[in-house]
Design a protein around this nucleic acid. Sequence first.
DNA 1: GTGGTCTAGACCACG
DNA 2: GTGGTCTAGACCACT
Lengths: 122, 122, 122, 122
Amino acid sequence: MFSIQIEGGKPIYEQLFIRISELIMNGIMQENEKLPAVREVAKSLGINPNTVQKTYAMLEAEGLIYSIPAKGSYIAKAEKTAEKIREMARAELKNAVNTAFSKGITADEATAIVKLCEEERK
Amino acid sequence: MFSIQIEGGKPIYEQLFIRISELIMNGIMQENEKLPAVREVAKSLGINPNTVQKTYAMLEAEGLIYSIPAKGSYIAKAEKTAEKIREMARAELKNAVNTAFSKGITADEATAIVKLCEEERK
Amino acid sequence: MFSIQIEGGKPIYEQLFIRISELIMNGIMQENEKLPAVREVAKSLGINPNTVQKTYAMLEAEGLIYSIPAKGSYIAKAEKTAEKIREMARAELKNAVNTAFSKGITADEATAIVKLCEEERK
Amino acid sequence: MFSIQIEGGKPIYEQLFIRISELIMNGIMQENEKLPAVREVAKSLGINPNTVQKTYAMLEAEGLIYSIPAKGSYIAKAEKTAEKIREMARAELKNAVNTAFSKGITADEATAIVKLCEEERK
DNA sequence: GTGGTCTAGACCACG
DNA sequence: GTGGTCTAGACCACT
């Protein structure tokens, strides 16, 4: 279903949050598409339903999905959603770049890393 | 002495680790220079000596400093140290860029962010 | 549970580290098997939870176990784990042999000691 | 003079103890030869006289040297000294071999390591 | 209930 | 006075 790595240092609910937001960006999850039920996700990942519930609540709080009681959760308006996610991603990246700068990485080096990552994605 | 913000979500010992490694890069801490004593740092920051001790242990494990029991802790060989820190910073940045890419940020956008950060530093 | 001797000069957390790595080699602890909880070990050995926590952190840093917060700690992939432990043991033994040599022990004498130890194990 | 590495994890007085006992084995320090004065060693190594004093006391306690008040310290009877050191070395090596065995190292592997160390010394 | 972090305070070996 | 280890007990985020 969503494939997360339980081993990783990050909390599960956060990994799941990131994973779902990525799926939206990749166009795999479309506007108004129904998300799998909380219990279903929990069972297929072997994690606690509370954890999934928390993730959905966070997604809704961020306006990325909307929930209809007794029916299910759905992807919110795509443009808005995508823009929100990108905004968050940009803020995090800026943060990371500043951190790198403070440790002696130059702007040229940073740009090189960006290009390198771009190459690797192909 | 080291000035950290206890607020943030990150553990204190990690913030301190990052802070000291930055000081080394900025040339403020030189090779073989003595670090302030564990208890001294703890007192000046208003935190527990154990927390500082943990930070020093991590720095030593990474080879950034070396500790002589009953004498003090000192900055390790500068070239090695600086290179290690840059290596760590590069790895983290690469990680951040990949994360941003997976959320729909383009390489051009990432490059723009790098330039923006560069401007702000001036 | 783990049975260690608090007497020896070596720190408790180190003894525990060695003891657990031995249990893995003896096949008593299997891949993905759950280690007893930090507090449980502490109670059964009559030592402080922090001390056990430090041991688990070291084991994780060496890649011998992996910890999932709020779930437990587990033995890492068996092949890798066993090989890592053997590698560490070999390095230590080599070190010990060199030390013995520098004190006048001959290679023949060293070989004899190895055989003697082998006999005693039977 | 004696060349020790201050960085190493082991206490200085122990390193110095080992170093001097090695010098005796190598025949560099002969029976009844005078050891350099405590203050002299301390100054040349940049360490505390108390530390050197402690080492000499240990060497005397082990019967490896003998001290004449207001005159100096001297290497004890060579045969006895050498044998004592070798005995200690043998005990330590046996210990190390047993530890290695308990972690899955085989007797053949241990023998191979002994031979490898022998080669490297040439 | 779990691992992770932190505090407060202590002791030890070493220099 | 220093780093290193340890105890006792607490809180937190997460499951």
